[in-house]
C-alpha cells in the first residue's frame, strides 16, 4: 500500500488540480491552441504523478515522449494547419452538449471507480520495484512486445509520411 505523508498529499492535490484543470480547459476552450496548452499542462502533471508514485523511469519517459514529442508535435501541426475562423466547426451549444455528456458519463465514472478500487485485491503482491528490475524485465520477459513496438513505430512513421504527402504528379484527378 502507499503510505503518504502530509507533503506528498499536498503535492498530489496540486498535481490533481493541474491534471483535471488542464483537461477541462482542453475540452472546453474554443481556440485549438489553448486546448493544446491545457493538454500540455495535464501531461506535465502526469509526469509529476509518475514521479510521486516513485517511478522515475516512467516519469522521465513521460516527460520526454509525451511532453517533448507528442504535445509539441500537436502544437506544430495546429500552427501549421492554421485554420481560419470559417474553417473551424461551428459549436454554438457546446457547453450544453458537454453537460449532457457529463451527466450521461458520470454513472460510468462511479462504476469505474468502484471497479478499480477492488482491482488490487485480485493480484498477488510482489517485491518492491526499481529501474533496474524494469530494465531487466523489459529485455527478458517483454522483449517480443518491445520489438513489435519498434516495428509498429516504424510502420507508423512510414504511414504518416504516405498519408500526409501530396498526391503524386502522375495521378491526375
Amino acid at each position: 500500500m502507499l503510505d503518504f505523508n502530509t507533503l506528498e498529499t499536498i503535492v498530489f492535490s496540486i498535481l490533481t488540480l493541474f491534471m483535471v484543470g488542464g483537461s477541462l480547459v482542453m475540452i472546453t476552450s474554443k481556440q485549438t491552441i489553448f486546448s493544446a496548452f491545457g493538454f500540455l499542462l495535464a501531461m506535465i502533471a502526469l509526469g509529476g504523478m509518475f514521479a510521486l508514485l516513485n517511478n522515475r523511469f516512467l516519469s522521465i519517459a513521460q516527460i520526454m515522449v509525451s511532453v517533448g514529442a507528442i504535445v509539441i508535435l500537436s502544437m506544430l501541426t495546429i500552427l501549421t494547419v492554421n485554420a481560419k475562423e470559417e474553417n473551424m466547426p461551428e459549436e454554438k451549444n457546446k457547453f450544453i452538449l458537454i453537460s449532457i455528456s457529463a451527466i450521461i458519463v458520470s454513472p460510468f465514472t462511479f462504476l469505474l471507480y468502484k471497479a478499480l478500487t477492488t482491482l488490487p485485491e485480485h493480484f498477488t503482491k510482489m517485491q518492491t520495484i526499481n529501474s533496474k528490475v524494469i530494465g531487466s524485465l523489459l529485455f527478458s520477459e517483454w522483449v517480443l512486445p518491445f520489438e513489435i513496438l519498434s516495428i509498429l513505430l516504424m510502420s507508423a512513421m512510414l504511414g504518416a509520411i504516405i498519408i500526409a504527402k501530396d498526391k503524386l504528379k502522375g495521378e491526375n484527378s
Partner: peptide, 15 residues
Amino acid sequence: SQVLGDANASVIALL
C-alpha cells in the same frame, strides 16, 4: 505497479 510492487505493469506502461 506501485501498489502491488510488480514491475511488469511499469513495463506495460512504458510500452
